[in-house]
């Protein structure tokens, strides 16, 4: 009897602690959501708002129907939808190639790859390379320089190496060529890491901000993150910088910065959050990849 009660107590206390931790994770999101819908006249900074005192979609209206939201969205969609499959294709093929131990020059390639983890040339050489490739002012400057990276390739490589050789050999016996093996055997078995990396790449492309500012001057081509940053900046401008000489003459009324910032956060998060559940099952499995050496 004592054992069962102790056991139940244990279960309950664990559940309770986990509930608290879960709440600690969720409550900030509620806060953001609530503040984004709060009317500016009742918004008080530094107060915990879990339910808007007065509902108002003004912040969203300002963002979604503002000048340039649509073009910015279009840019982000192009970069994400074109970039992610390309990134996966390049990373997976490179990783598969490098996973074959009989490839000549393999070690050299791997060493160069690892070199990129250790050293980074910095902003200006990157800029010069992109410029010399003629990629400035194009969405491809946001895609190609980041289309793959060493970590992705190394993780995929070890996953491919974990696939039994026998499968490939038996496929070869059945008359399959290398491309066929890759497409028909390796890739279907790699759904887990591929789903994980799809998410990583998609989120990274969706979040493109800094590269857009550096490589693209034409504001029509700027992605969503830059557009949203502009909004949040505009809201911030008046009490902005008490540094050397900045006076902004401001006109017009905009919702106060906090509600707008929160609405901007939600607007940016929403697409990714909506996609997550569908990749959830692959994701959990994929994250463990590379953590256990077989």
């Amino acid at each position: 009897m004592g054992m069962i009660r102790a056991d139940r107590l244990y279960q309950l206390s664990v559940a309770f602690v986990l509930l608290l931790v879960g709440l600690a994770m969720i409550v900030p999101f509620f806060y953001i959501l609530a503040v984004s819908f709060t009317d500016s006249s009742v918004y008080e900074p530094n107060k915990l708002i879990l339910w808007p005192a007065e509902w108002s979609a003004d912040a969203y209206k300002y963002i979604l129907f503002g000048n340039g939201f649509n073009t910015a969205l279009r840019s982000s969609l192009f970069v994400t939808l074109a970039g992610t499959p390309l990134a996966l294709a390049i990373s997976a093929t490179f990783a598969y190639m490098v996973s074959k131990s009989y490839l000549p020059g393999r070690t050299a390639m791997l060493r160069l790859l690892v070199l990129t983890i250790l050293f980074s040339p910095g902003l200006i050489p990157n800029y010069l390379v992109v410029r010399n490739l003629g990629l400035l002012e194009s969405w491809w400057s946001l895609i190609l320089p980041v289309v793959t990276n060493a970590w992705t390739v190394l993780v995929l490589k070890s996953f491919f190496q974990g696939i039994p050789q026998e499968l490939e050999e038996s496929a070869k016996i059945d008359g399959c060529n290398d491309m066929g093996i890759f497409m028909r055997i390796i890739l279907p078995l790699s759904k887990a890491p591929l789903a994980a990396f799809t998410l990583f790449f998609a989120v990274a492309f969706w979040n493109t901000y800094f590269n857009a500012i550096i490589y693209i001057n034409d504001s029509v081509k700027w992605p969503l993150q830059v557009y949203l940053q502009q909004i949040v900046l505009a809201a911030n401008a008046s009490r902005f910088i008490d540094s050397q000489a900045l006076t902004q003459l401001q006109l017009g009324s905009t919702p106060p910065e906090e509600t707008m910032k929160m609405a901007a956060v939600i607007a940016v998060m929403a697409p990714i959050v909506l996609v997550y559940p569908f990749l959830q099952k692959h994701f959990a499995q994929g994250v463990l990849i590379g953590s256990v050496k077989e």
């Binding site: 902003l123 010069l128 550096i214």
Partner: peptide
């Protein structure tokens, strides 16, 4: 136009290159 927060980086890249 370059947003204020990133202006320093953009300016430096431009000046150096």
């Amino acid at each position: 136009y370059v947003p204020y927060n990133e202006y320093a980086a953009r300016q430096d890249v431009g000046l150096a290159s």
